[in-house]
Design a binder for these strands. Structure first.
Length: 478
RNA sequence: UCCCUAGUAGCUCAGUUGGUUAGAGCGGCGGACUGUUAAUCCGUAGGUCGUAGGUUCAAGUCCUACCUGGGGAGCCA
């Protein structure tokens, strides 16, 4: 008999069907005559209730059916006599595929903290919460490709190993095959990277953008979706040393087109989750509600599904950096001196300011544009005012910056001037500047932190809980 | 990296102004129970109190350093 997934049984199974299921035991309970096994195979958040008539099975077999054990069960589907489920399975043959010693298996049928499960990241997929998170994560990855594919974008694989250190997006991880203890040295006593594997110093990528621009200025629209590495000593709930980023780059797009795309993209992802992951989202919403109960009233957030629907159904607020500064200066917390950091035109906004705008003033996702040029990267489009650049940051409640992007400067002259001012080595970037030398056109792009998106969709609070095996300072387990 | 905070049973925690033998709930194990829903009821085992020093007649409790976790900040996606 062919194995049937529990998802199919729960959605399409008919009483009387003979089936085989394979999965892992979540709990076993029951009385002298009958046992109930909640079996889960990862295909859906719900368990299949397997009913075991104790008289028909070996005592020792039943004893070994503990939480975490893997079983193959064949039997007949039946309408459930209990009230918790519509359909269940009457076991005829039970095979223990792999036991799980209850003294040693750490995931027991009780509430565990996320911190404990994080330390057991290799087993946390076995829990409802994490199986839901990772099914949603998969669905979102698929939805990213679906969105861009339907729009005619090309998925471009930009390099993971790169020699360019030009974007200044953060500290980089060195990639080298030199002997760390005893590297070859130059006459000046510096490490001689000409003898290294690539003949020069190389690092893990912090962004595929620059290479992405090269693709966009020929293919029209491209996007990247791959791992990204930042060797920053960041210890927060929103940062990882290894994370996944999506970076679309589009020729002939100005800043407004860029914003339109970012908003449409985020909404299409949210819609995909609502349309395809409702079971998991409902579970996660319930989990969140439970967690929120312990918080003071004023810190509680909206129901997860309501929040997703709210973002889907409302336009993002679009304001300039300068307008944001005005709003902040006229705000209550500013007047009462509640902000810790100063607010004046020219400073970068702190997260307390962003949170005020998004969570208090507008209570809605916000796109901030046209930042002062001195706090943004060299490649951004210089505005006519001479002071600002065509940057855009999409700010989400709780998460903060979920997207950062800009229109790119297409004028060779302006770009070279800016690079000189900001000490970006133009010589090493000659390949990048060639796009401005030959057939340069206006173009734009942005970067979306994939894990930050998953935080928002799942309502999880810590970025380490939405990636399978988080890499953070002092942590590269598993 | 900075600030705050925590580390006691497998897990979640309690442990009074320092004072005999360190507790509970959950989980585990044994038993009971005619269909249970994280079942219920009875019983039972389980601890180098994060590590290393120090103060003291006496340290889970006080002090110092380190390690690890959590929250916040910075950096950013």
């Amino acid at each position: 008999m062919k194995r049937v997934k529990i998802k199919d049984i729960l959605q399409k199974g008919e009483p009387g069907n003979e089936v085989v299921v394979k999965g892992w035991v979540r709990t076993k309970r029951g009385s002298k005559n009958v046992n109930f096994i909640a079996l889960n195979d990862g295909s859906i958040i719900h368990n299949l209730q397997v009913v075991v008539d104790v008289d028909n099975f070996d005592d020792s077999l039943l004893r070994d059916i503990n939480t975490g054990a893997a079983l193959s069960v064949s039997g007949k589907l039946a309408e459930s006599a209990g009230s918790g489920q519509a359909i269940e399975m009457i076991a005829e043959k039970v095979e223990l595929l792999g036991g799980a010693d209850p003294d040693k298996f750490p995931i027991q049928p009780k509430r565990h903290t996320l911190e404990f499960l994080r330390e057991n990241a290799h087993l946390r997929f076995r829990t409802n919460t994490f199986s839901a998170v990772f099914r949603v994560r998969h669905a979102m990855a698929f939805a990213v490709h679906k969105f861009f594919n339907e729009k005619g974008f090309n998925y471009l694989h930009t390099p993971i190993i790169t020699a360019s250190d030009a974007e200044g997006a953060g500290q980089m991880f060195r990639v080298s095959t030199l002997d760390a203890k005893n590297p070859p040295l130059t006459d000046e006593g510096e490490v001689d990277y000409t003898q290294d594997f690539f003949g020069k110093a190389t690092n893990l990528t912090v962004s595929g953008q620059l290479e992405g621009e090269l693709g966009a200025l020929a293919l029209g629209e491209i996007y990247t979706f791959g791992p990204t590495f930042r060797a920053e000593n960041s210890n927060t709930t929103r940062h990882l040393a290894e994370f996944w980023m999506i970076e679309p780059e589009m020729a002939f797009y100005d800043l407004k087109d860029n914003m339109d795309l970012a908003e449409e993209f985020l909404k299409s992802l949210i819609k995909y989750a609502l349309d395809n992951c409702m079971d998991d989202l409902q579970f996660l919403a319930g989990r969140l509600k439970q967690e929120e109960k312990s918080k003071p009233q004023n810190q509680r957030s909206m129901d997860l599904i309501e929040k997703l629907e709210f973002v889907l159904n409302n336009n993002f607020i679009r304001i300039t950096y300068s307008e944001a500064i005005d709003i902040l200066i006229n705000s209550k917390p500013y007047k009462k001196k509640k902000f810790q950091f100063p607010v004046e035109w020219g400073v970068d906004l702190q997260s307390e300011h962003e949170r005020y705008l998004v969570e208090k003033h507008f209570n809605c996702p916000v796109i901030l544009t046209d930042y002062p040029k001195d706090i943004k990267a060299f490649y951004m489009k210089q505005n006519a005012d001479g002071k600002t650049v065509g940057a855009m940051d999409v700010l989400f409640p709780q998460i903060g910056e979920i997207i950062g992007g800009s229109q790119r400067e297409e004028s060779l002259e302006k770009l070279e001037t800016r690079m000189k001012e900001m000490n970006v080595p133009a010589k090493e970037m000659d390949w990048y500047l060639d796009t401005r030398r030959f057939g340069s056109v206006e173009h734009s792009g942005f970067g979306l932190g994939f894990e930050r998106l998953i935080l928002f969709i799942t309502g999880m609070g810590n970025i380490r809980d939405v990636i399978a095996f988080p890499r953070t300072p002092k942590n590269a387990e598993f």
